[in-house]
Design a binder for these strands. Sequence first.
DNA 1: TTATATTTTTAGCCTTGTCTAAAAAAATTA
DNA 2: TAATTTTTTTAGACAAGGCTAAAAATATAA
Lengths: 219, 219
Amino acid sequence: MFTLAEENYLKAIFHLENEFQGEISTNAIAESMETKPSSVTDMIQKLAEKKLLTYKRYKGVQLTGSGKKVAAGVIRKHRLWEVFLVEKLSFHWDEVHEIAEQLEHIQSEELIIRLDKFLGSPDFDPHGDPIPDKHGVLKRTEKKILSEIDKNQKGVCVGVKESSPEFLQYLDKKKISIGTKIYVLGKEFFDGSMIIQVGSEQFFISHKIAENLYVQTQE
Amino acid sequence: MFTLAEENYLKAIFHLENEFQGEISTNAIAESMETKPSSVTDMIQKLAEKKLLTYKRYKGVQLTGSGKKVAAGVIRKHRLWEVFLVEKLSFHWDEVHEIAEQLEHIQSEELIIRLDKFLGSPDFDPHGDPIPDKHGVLKRTEKKILSEIDKNQKGVCVGVKESSPEFLQYLDKKKISIGTKIYVLGKEFFDGSMIIQVGSEQFFISHKIAENLYVQTQE
DNA sequence: TTATATTTTTAGCCTTGTCTAAAAAAATTA
DNA sequence: TAATTTTTTTAGACAAGGCTAAAAATATAA
Ligand SMILES: [Mn+2]
Ligand SMILES: [Mn+2]
Ligand SMILES: [Mn+2]
Ligand SMILES: [Mn+2]
């Protein structure tokens, strides 16, 4: 179907489109993929020929319907495999991303149908990210970034924006995982840092931490 | 570690060494991999540089210790994944080979340790082939090819030499699977065909079928 | 032993995906 | 508006892994 490189480009552009609005720039793609802009230009020209995205020189790109579908399919596979690794093979949530980066490229429709069933058709991966359905549709949930929560409000952790091992291990140390209740006791407007309560512990977190945690507030 | 192409060459040569004695020829490798002899020459020269096999121009190749270890590792992964697909995802034994051809190249030591444990450290794959241990050691079992069994002898099917979907589907139709008892009621020396009994059914099989079935005789 | 056939290697080309260096376009600053 | 900086594209090169055609070595037949 599509090569490993093509799938990775489509996935990266899909993530960028969900994060920023409008056309995605060559440089943004290059940065997110840790590659050179000239390589990106080459590849997006090929993907444009295949109608997976629209491209006008110097104007950036935008995924077409089929481009989005391919990207969502890869992300679906990635997240299902992450669930498998955590739920069935007892991996820790900070260990699964690299392996899923490989597994997401295995080509077999039937495999994913059966893996999904075996896992009980999960809706979210171990980092709280939604798993696209077989048609590539991602259901959006209302979640807020912790840094946007006001003082004296509370929320439940429903996901992480970053999922690097370093960040996830920090959260482990602080006993924060998906489902953890977080109370915002104080908020410093100068640097965006917070005092929060998790369980019976109260501690300080930086803005960088707060902007990478998703929470749901109940109302 | 090694590229997909390198792993596939090493695996093919490993299988050829187990089937034939002595050096393996360029043409034999090309045929088994469905590629051209000139491509094989290119690759074996690279693998010789990496000390994965020994090579003298025009004289064929032989895997070194480390070449064998890499190959056995790939085969271990292939067969463990086949067990996973059949035991956990309920695939049929004729559907798993192609998917395992992809999964065998996933690079993660820890993944295989955990997959093996999850599957209960199986000794054989769904086709009756032994799974190399983590050191690459393949335990040999005494098994015979059905075509070598004499008239009026019986055996238990313990494996298949071919594992193409076509052959496996033929066996299904005849209700032959791993563990099935087979009685040799008659044997035609002219063409090697046989009359066998499986359960309460008696039927004819050609030499081509008989030489692709492994059985164990009890004595 | 010489001639022929087969096997293996080499030489040269192609595609994919990457890079660096230079050119071109767009955006920003003066 | 003109000059400068940034972004993007193009040109040309390279490595991996494949191919075809031709040359070289080995094996077989006469
Ligand atoms: Mn991930
Ligand atoms: Mn994830
Ligand atoms: Mn197989
Ligand atoms: Mn098998």
